[in-house]
Design a protein around this nucleic acid. Structure first.
Lengths: 335, 335
DNA sequence: TTGAAAGCGCTAACAC
DNA sequence: GTGTTAGCGCTTTCAA
């Protein structure tokens, strides 16, 4: 069974002819309501609607150089951590009348660079979330494009980051209040800027309260990697494990269970991100929530602002975090 | 601190001048490698690279009418069910050298219609996942755009749907094998095409094996709605509950637990989708897996194919499903 | 094999 | 207020 191919769309000239005005008048009716007679404008809009006319964004962009389109690049769309970021960014873009293009870099710097290159001329700017690109490449990209980084800070480039300083302090205070004398940090990939910040924050906070912290790893930020990480925890003899992220924490908890280590009775487990699932597992996971949706929205808003102003600033934002205490942490009971 | 605004990008004319050829030759060097002297071509490409030139997709699109961009619209980006769809679609689009635009319709038909209207002229086609639009609107949209539906079937419009016929049979067979004489279906929103198919499949399959099924609801497809649904299950006195989707199932299980009903000892619970989290909860959830990533990829591939051929067909695809048996289902023990 | 020129649909001067 | 005109960056005839 066959059906007709998509109809050709009406152009501004079709509307102009049908309405008995010039193309520029139609254009003005849409973009410059003030500078056209009210009656003409209404007539034009009527005709446009009857013809099903929508301005062609491509043609518009060609003239103005602006596409009203923003790109968001994330390492892995299926990672629930990014769901909030995407949602927030999409919302902020839509609210401003812009379109959001989503790119999955597949955790690869090469793919990310390629996407930036390809998408560059077609968008007004980028939000790079958890970028895998080295600083130099990022700087180069920022020369050609409006750019906002999410959870990555580079001097001279605008960024939005979670307040890991406060967040890690909350974690340490929580563990210390439960009497844990020490903790291990199960580190993620060394390239992870967030990961480095998390570790630095934990060290500082632990130092401040006289707690000992040690770093183990690195581990992949996945559930699968949790097995190896959990075994390392067991070997370490510690009573508290802070994991690079919730995915890893989930894997760690599962493995501890398998090995007969009780959470939180024997070992307390903390994660980062508060992803979907953190309150589904058993025990439910204590984790540092990052307000990813706010972060995504803020990044887009900052990006829009960047495109609007004449000079660029590297003003960056720090977003609050808060510890969600659930069942995976409890009092220290030295074995 | 100020930094320069994004540099102006090199145009085809810059390259032409620098290379000492005409713009058309540069154009050919990029798009028609065969019709230009090998040496000239290499020279042009060298110059282009040194200038950091990338063809402007907008200008290209203006001429050809094709943008190499596809749009995927989903009701809710944060719903883990769609993560797979998005990933699959993104992958297929990238593989074909196309860009994917993602839209969140916020479960609203109005937002969806608006997005289709706005994005229409800027993309080569749409994948509408779990569309909320009525049939008539969908038909109209399909007249103006290349369109592929995901989990929705309308005669004359190409679609990709999960094989709920086989899937629901698997569910019923599984429950019947455990001796459950009856089951209830906790229905989702009445507008949900998938939901209607699921119920129809369950009825047929149950009839075939002499099992009784009853429909309860409708309930929102959320964890929160699970409380009301679980209470209805308790009232019904049944031993098996099949839920509209995993989100609802998660909520139902939590509530049953709170009310002291044991899963699966007292009631077996089945979901649909196999979302992230289905194997995190306690007990882990038996659910019908849908291969959402394949579905997303297939939808995009079909869409591309649609744009390439001269005549449109409404050929639709049915994707296999399989029941993932976990801990939430077990033998019937009449109380 | 290459160049010149005419648009693609729209906006932005510049007239009237 | 409204029409005319000249491009935006690129592809694509049509000549050479």
């Amino acid at each position: 069974m066959d059906a007709p191919r998509p109809r050709k769309r009406a152009t501004i000239l079709d509307v102009a002819r049908e309405a008995g005005v010039a193309a520029s008048t139609v254009s003005r009716a849409f973009t410059n309501p003030g500078r056209v007679n009210q009656a003409t404008r209404e007539h034009v809009l009527d005709v446009a609607k009857s013809l099903g006319y929508t301005p062609n964004p491509m043609a518009r962009a060609l003239e103005s150089g602006r596409t009203e389109t923003l790109a968001l690049l994330v390492p892995d769309i299926t990672n629930p951590y990014f769901a909030g970021v995407i949602k927030g960014a999409e919302g902020a873009a839509a609210r401003s009348g812009r379109t959001l293009v989503l790119g999955d870099t597949q955790e690869s710097a090469a793919t990310e660079a390629e996407l930036v290159r390809r998408l560059g001329p077609a968008v007004d700017g980028f939000v790079l979330s958890a970028s895998r690109l080295p600083d130099t490449e990022l700087r180069r990209a920022a020369e050609l494009n409006n750019l906002v980084l999410l959870n990555r800070a580079i001097p001279g480039i605008t960024g939005v980051v979670a307040d890991f300083g406060s967040g890690t302090r909350q974690i340490i205070d929580h563990l210390a209040s439960h009497g844990h004398p020490s903790a291990v940090f199960l580190a993620g990939p060394p390239e992870s800027w967030s990961g480095r910040r998390r570790w630095a924050g934990l060290e500082d906070a632990a130092h401040a309260v006289g707690m000992t912290v040690r770093r183990l790893g690195p581990y992949a930020p996945t559930r699968e990697a949790g097995a190896a990480a959990a075994d390392a925890v067991i070997t370490s003899g510690t009573t508290a494990a802070v994991c690079h992220n919730d995915m890893l924490a989930l894997g760690v908890m599962r493995r501890l269970l398998e090995r007969g280590v009780r959470v939180p009775d024997d070992v307390s487990v903390v994660g980062f991100d508060d992803i979907f699932g953190a309150d589904l597992c058993t025990p439910t996971l204590t984790t540092l929530a990052e307000h990813t949706q706010d972060a995504g929205a803020r990044a887009v808003e900052t990006l829009i602002h960047l495109g609007l102003q004449r000079t660029r600033t590297d003003q960056s934002w720090q977003l609050p975090t808060h510890l969600v205490v659930r069942e995976s942490t409890g009092p220290c009971r030295i074995r």
